[in-house]
Nucleic acid binder design. Structure first.
Lengths: 205, 205, 205, 205
DNA sequence: TATGAATGAGTTTTCATTCAT
DNA sequence: TATGAATGAAAACTCATTCAT
């Protein structure tokens, strides 16, 4: 069993190494301009070895998404567990979203740019995974509405889309602008803006 | 001169016909799966003719963006000219953004999906054009801040990104979900949400 | 119409040139060891051009068969038309079969060796065409039986298979043995043997 | 020595098991479409194990031929030993040829189709083995000629080719046509036809 | 200006074979 | 002897682009 364990670990590790290499290469040259042999060289394996772990170049791309998203969803739930206030949960959610992207720029580029390639991908691959992402956000918003902290005029889904849109746009901007300034720092201002709106709040007497 | 005029007109019309065909084909099959000969057939011209109007397949894609964006920017400025209230201007801006996408679904698909292909494209082509888009929005926001209608806590640019992010996400969602419900109808709720925030507003006495 | 005629001719000629080149290359190196680019080079065209005339490497192989077989069937019918005696028809048929192979050794090699590759090919492609070949032979044999020149103890189909088997084996042998002696010369002895049998005929008194 | 003996036996058995598996796989999918790993799986061994018994995929193919042919040659000589009449020997030879193919359809497919792959194979591998086959047949015919039972007008070699061609064509036909009718039953009619010829024998007075 | 036949560069994927265990 | 993970060579086919007509 020791042996089995070790073999398993090695296999998973090798797969991960190839995935990291793929993210790096895709981020550098773009998915369509990248050759599988580039990925193999970057990972330090033979071309054919890539296909022992991933069915195709496409699967390489989608696996980057799947793997990172799976981990994100597990971790973000962990982070939210101890927080009671929905507003604070939203802040933490946004901050963690940005932290993950900032931690791995290659992956961020793949997420914000390369994954948006095709209608097919956007529809089939990511929909299933993104549903979970939106589900978590919706639950926070629903709880906020139940406690009369967040407006009930709009559906949680609608609000979630606006929040995601704002976060996503900021992330894309960070990726494209080669901005070295911290992305995470933008999380709170965005959430503040979305919470309070952009209307000037006049003093009330 | 009459002749020249007519030739010019014909040329522009022919170019537009090819562009419409390209949008249709790209929307249907995706940019990378579309062949130039597909576009030519759809436009009713020979393969080589496409190259009399556009330098490359890439230029076909970017011209769809450029042409539509040029028109959008001219028209949206027209629309804003007669409006004095920055808030009302924002609403009109958002509504018009959505109207344009809704009017031509092929183009909308190209805008929301196909144009996001490469870092290269996102950086080079669209940045120049998007700058104008953001400029207009920033001017509205700045005027709103000057009149103390909109919050001055955040930079106009920052706010503009959040607004654009929200609109863009909603548009992408509309495209992907094959939603037949009107996209334009979502403009006002989004702007309302962004103006007032999602915090519940308690009555004040 | 002049132009159309010329273009048509050119296209057919070009296709034939590629087919001849393919036969040469396949005969030299074998189908599976031949690259399409070898065929293209031999034909003096670009790799891609081959695919303007033939859908695939496989179609190149089957077209060699189809084209040659079509011509053979037409010509052999011509040759038989003026002959009344079924036995003489058989001789002419066999002789012409061998003449065609002898005239184009590349094609002969493809026919006798390369075309026997796969069950798939043997079943699908050639069956339809070979049916005609056997049909002609059967008609001769049937007529011979009707006139009581050929034995009626066996079905024409059975006899045709034996005749074809004998001719085919001799042809394969000629191809493999690099035999420069004329193949055509073997036609009459084979037919004689098949007509009279290999039993010694004792004088009858 | 017991052990050694057993090991030897096991090794030969294992080799035969792999050969049977190869014949099955080649017959099912064709030689070029078959993977060595398919053969290994069919034989219940690891991929690498195949190479402990056979040098290459090609050798797998030629070993099917060699092994079966060796056995055929030994057995057919056995069968002929007790027969004195050359004509009866011919019948027995033909019948046994067909019996062997009929007994193992996978091997028959390999013999009639897959082995005809390349000029190279036809020339090098099979020539050496086929020489023995033809040798046996030639000896029968020579004896027949010596006894004035068979015609001396033609060389034994020539007659042997015609006989083999007839048998081979019938076998190929049986394989291709998925014919379930017995192949062996065709042996005697073929030999009869070749002995007596297809000419109608008129009563002699 | 329009055509469309010809070009040929370019890449994913397969799979026979090896070899460390 | 057996395993099966790793290797890496090898080629069919596509399609953007050109250019002679």
């Amino acid at each position: 069993m020791e042996t089995l364990q070790r073999v398993e670990t090695t296999r998973a590790e090798r797969a991960l190494r190839i995935l990291k290499a793929a993210a790096k290469v895709f981020a550098r040259s773009g998915f369509f301009n990248s050759k599988v042999s580039d990925v193999a060289r970057e990972a330090g394996v033979a071309d054919g070895t890539v296909y022992l772990y991933f069915r195709s170049k496409d699967e390489l791309l989608s696996s980057i998404f799947t793997t990172a998203m799976d981990e994100f969803l597990i971790r973000v739930r962990d982070q939210l567990r101890d927080i009671d206030d929905p507003v604070e949960q939203l802040r933490r959610f946004a901050r963690y979203h940005f932290e993950c992207l900032e931690r791995d720029r290659d992956m961020a580029i793949v997420f914000q740019i390369e994954l948006r390639h095709s209608t097919k991908f956007m529809e089939q691959i990511s929909t299933a995974q993104l549903a979970d992402y939106f589900q978590i956000m919706c639950e926070i918003i629903e709880e906020g509405q139940r406690r009369h902290i967040l407006t009930s005029h709009l559906s949680p889904k609608f609000i979630a889309k606006v929040v995601f849109g704002a976060l996503d746009e900021m992330a894309t901007n960070w990726v494209i602008s080669h901005n070295n300034r911290t992305l995470t720092a933008a999380a709170d201002p965005i959430i503040d803006l979305l919470l309070n709106g952009m209307r000037e709040h006049h003093a009330i007497e």
